[in-house]
């Protein structure tokens, strides 16, 4: 059961990443990121079984990545009345193609790294790298500040997947700190979003180019 889930989970996670890259509807993107966050919160449980710390880490991630942060973003969207469509610096299909290439690269690269025996079949490392790649692409190619925050969240999701491999060596306090930092980061980004909207009456980051050489 655990084995099968560990086989299926990577594909769901990576496909959700692709969906965010290709989708033009902002609301759907937030929901996809929320679903991805909820899915990856299973990783500690699947890798380490039901035990105290894994449960806490999973629960914390499910609560924050799956529920609290997406709700915060949806609320920000409502308050700021952001248009639904997303503009991209390069087309959506080209971004998706680059995303697929990055994911393939992640699988090839992860093959060259030595893995502990128990992690050989779980595809954790390539999934983490591919998800991080999707996050990077979102941050680089999207013009809306809110989508850049989504990109940051996808990047964090990728790192969380990798972190699940070593969550045994991380004390609970540090994990709590990591999750708290993520929450505060998104919270502050939300405040800044609000200020950008007030200053420029748009959430496009394109006008944010006055500071340059």
């Amino acid at each position: 059961m655990t084995e099968q889930l560990l086989q299926l989970l990577p594909f769901a996670v990576i496909l959700l990443g692709f969906y965010v890259l290709a989708s033009q509807r902002l609301r759907a993107c937030v929901e996809a990121v929320a679903l991805q966050g909820a899915l990856i919160s299973c990783y500690p449980l699947l890798l380490h079984g039901f035990e105290g710390q894994a449960l806490m880490l999973s629960g914390g991630a499910l609560l924050l990545k799956g529920i609290v942060i997406p709700l915060m973003l949806l609320r920000a969207m409502r308050k700021l009345q952001i248009e639904r469509e997303i503009e991209s610096l390069i087309g959506f299909i080209p971004t998706l193609v680059v995303g697929v290439v990055v994911a393939a690269g992640a699988f090839l690269f992860a093959d060259t790294l030595p893995l502990a025996l128990e992690h050989h079949h779980s595809l954790v490392v390539p999934t983490a790298l591919a998800t991080m790649g999707c996050g990077f692409l979102l941050i680089i190619t999207r013009r809306k500040a809110l989508t850049q925050v989504l990109g940051y969240l996808v990047l964090e999701n990728g790192i969380y997947i990798f972190g699940a491999l070593i969550s045994k060596v991380l004390p609970a306090m540090v994990e709590a700190g990591v999750l708290l930092d993520l929450l505060v980061a998104v919270f502050i980004m939300g405040i800044v979003l609000h200020q950008i909207k007030r200053e420029f009456s748009t959430l496009d980051t394109q006008p944010l180019t006055e500071l340059k050489e």
């Binding site: 990077f136 940051y152 491999l165 980061a185 980004m189 200053e199 006055e210 500071l211």
Partner: peptide, 26 residues
């Protein structure tokens, strides 16, 4: 306007940087 632009770039770039540092520690 300028300070909000600077703050946004700072937050985003440094947050990504810090996230990579966490990956490094992992």
């Amino acid at each position: 306007r300028h300070s909000i632009e600077a703050t946004w770039k700072y937050l985003l770039i440094c947050s990504v940087g810090i996230a990579l540092a966490m990956l490094g520690i992992f």
